[in-house]
Amino acid sequence: MPSTRRPKLAVWKFASCDGCQLSLLDCEDELLQVAEVIEIANFPEASRAVVRGPYDLSLVEGSITTPHDAERIHKVRRASKFLVTIGACATSGGIQALRNFADVNQYIPLVYASPETIQVLNKSTPIADHVFVDFQLRGCPINKRQLVEVLSAFLNGRKPNTPPHSVCIECKRQGTVCVMGNAGAHCLGPVTQAGCGALCPSYRRSCYGCFGPKETPNTHSLSQWWSSHGMMNADICRAYRGFNAYAEAFRRESEAREK
């Protein structure tokens, strides 16, 4: 080991379901090893014992949806040497960003008994819109093998192997038969970043785009193809309005199909 002091890890939650941070606890086989090489200093889902900052590595889950959180994320950034966002909420605004396409003030009275107590921002936004982020780990939820890879890369001072290419490459490496070519499914794989292990296509389901847009995503061409094969604009719009609806490429395409 290059260093004798164990780096301090903190896990932070913003607007999210906790699924991504629980992926860390889900690393059953690797968890003891993780605890050996990293001091889990602040992780309320795992322990009430909190070690004060600053922290060498912060994993940030969730999106920014309230004025309070918009301030809190700056405190987290100041307390963190290296900040990694984990999951679709933190990297693109999450499923709750669906409200970005409507007026949140119209929703609030329908959902809450005392709407006047609710203080919420107009939009649900990714962490990188607020503070500098060192690395983004995609997924809804994140893939635990990728999480261990990111931790391992951080500890060893190297770049993580989390390629930004399509799900298709991962899918074909596994020998999975393409659900789009073969079953005419409306699969988002060709515009979605790999990392999940092409999970849905391996069960003969089309990709839902949980890992968000891949590099160079040509959503327009994919939609054109669906459209020429009878898919209605409303359905195309809905396909992009998932966990990563507010990610730039998906947002642009769904808005273009909304009109």
Binding site: M1, P2, E30, Q33, V34, E36, V37, V148, E149, L151, S152, A153, L155, N156, R158, N161, H165, S166, C168, I169, K172, R173, C178, G181, G189, P190, V191, K214, E215, T216, N218, S221, L222
Partner: peptide
């Protein structure tokens, strides 16, 4: 073109590959 890479994956002659170096947590 979707730049998805499907054509190269299914091509019986496309041979390109990349190297990935991985370390364990302890280094």
């Amino acid at each position: 073109c979707l730049n998805c890479g499907n054509c190269t994956m299914v091509c019986p002659t496309c041979f390109c590959n990349t190297m990935e170096d991985v370390t364990d947590l302890s280094g």
